[in-house]
Simulated scan of single mutants.
Amino acid sequence: MKNHLLLFFFLFSIARGMAQQADSGFSWWNELHGWEAGDPGWRNWMKISPGYLGPNALPVPQVRKGELAGPAEFEATISNHFHKGDPTQDISGHVYIPFAGNKIAVEMYGVAFERFAFSEEIRNERIARNKDGKGTAIGDFYFSTLIQVIRNKKFPNTLFRFATKTASGNQLEAARFTDSPAYFLDLSFSKKMGQQATGLFRPYGMLGFYTWQTNDELNLQNDALLYAIGTDFIKNDWLLSASLSGYSGYKNERDRPAQLNFDFRKDFRKKALRLQYIHGLRHWEYKTVRLSFIWKLKPAG
């Protein structure tokens, strides 16, 4: 019995020491933000908003352009997000599969790997618990369904999209991803003018709804108006695109990101190359360069 008691107190002392060590590991965060025992947990202190998270946490969705076209594709992308206090690099993938004569399509995409190194100022502003601001993360996974509503009629081409964001991303403590779901839906419109062989313009617009879960017990989700406007210039196998896109949340906590998008693509028979530049204007303060290699897969159905 005595031996059992000694073993119990020995194990209790180890567990207590480990708990104290873990607590002391975040004593800097407790002192910095005035956290005391009995206060809400650290997650409640963070702001689940694009202006207080990394570049891939709640990004403005890719602009859709009113129509489904082309074969199934797999796209591999490397990105460099330039930011004085939060330079970030990532590798991402995107799968697009149309079927039913390009009337319906599904997409699956996400960030497979992210590397970050943010400053002390950014760390404190975002209430992050990563002391040195350096690390790696795995991103969220998205999947979406696209339905061609109108095509090749007098009315502009019209496309409906419904997309869901999972909570697969990690590193919430470093303010990289939200650890919560989101979804968005939108209608996009476009009209072609001219001939592709001599030069074709395709103005387009998008309007929709974006909502994501927050940690605010009084407002468990933030709802936003999703929008975009832009134009393509297409000639033979070349595409040049420019657009303005963003969404506008109602909480007014840096939740109204807006950005300019520039997209250059060259198609080959079975492959394509794509170069993108994204310039943050508001509440998403990154300057992003993306390079993609695209494999054209056999169309499904």
Rank of each mutant, 00 (worst) to 15 (best):
D86Q: 12
D216A: 03
E125L: 12
K296E: 00
P71Q: 11
E31T: 09
R274V: 06
W45Q: 14
E120N: 10
F116D: 05
N56L: 13
K134P: 00
A258D: 04
A258H: 12
K103W: 14
P181W: 07
G70K: 04
Q221F: 12
S241K: 03
E217R: 15
S190Y: 10
F8R: 08
E67P: 04
D86R: 13
I78K: 15
R126S: 00
Y109M: 10
S188M: 02
W42H: 09
F26Q: 13
S245C: 04
V149G: 10
P257D: 03
F177R: 04
D132N: 07
P156C: 01
R256C: 09
K235A: 00
T198Q: 12
D186W: 05
T88D: 02
G199N: 04
N80C: 01
D86W: 10
D132P: 10
H81V: 00
L200T: 00
I104Q: 00
A174H: 03
E253Q: 13
N157S: 02
L200G: 10
S245M: 09
Y52S: 08
Y52G: 00
F189K: 01
M1W: 09
S92H: 06
S292W: 07
Q89L: 05
A100S: 13
W238T: 04
M18N: 10
F268G: 00
P257Q: 02
N3H: 14
R115K: 13
D86H: 13
F12E: 11
D132A: 05
L226N: 05
I234Q: 05
S49I: 03
T288N: 14
L200N: 03
F8D: 03
R265H: 05
Y52E: 10
A105L: 01
R274M: 08
A22W: 14
A37K: 14
E121S: 10
G66W: 02
W29M: 01
L159A: 03
D255F: 03
L5M: 11
L260Q: 14
G139H: 02
L225K: 10
F12T: 09
Q21R: 13
L273F: 03
M18Q: 14
Q171R: 15
V149S: 06
A163F: 07
N3G: 08
Y247H: 04
G139Q: 04
D216G: 08
Q221N: 15
K191V: 07
D223E: 15
F189D: 11
S292G: 06
W42I: 09
T166N: 12
G93C: 04
R115L: 12
A100E: 12
E67G: 07
A163D: 06
P257F: 01
L239V: 08
K84Q: 13
Y96C: 00
W29P: 03
D263S: 13
D237M: 02
T77N: 13
S119E: 01
G135M: 04
R265D: 03
N130Y: 05
S243I: 13
F118V: 00
L291D: 14
G205M: 11
L207E: 07
I104N: 01
S49K: 09
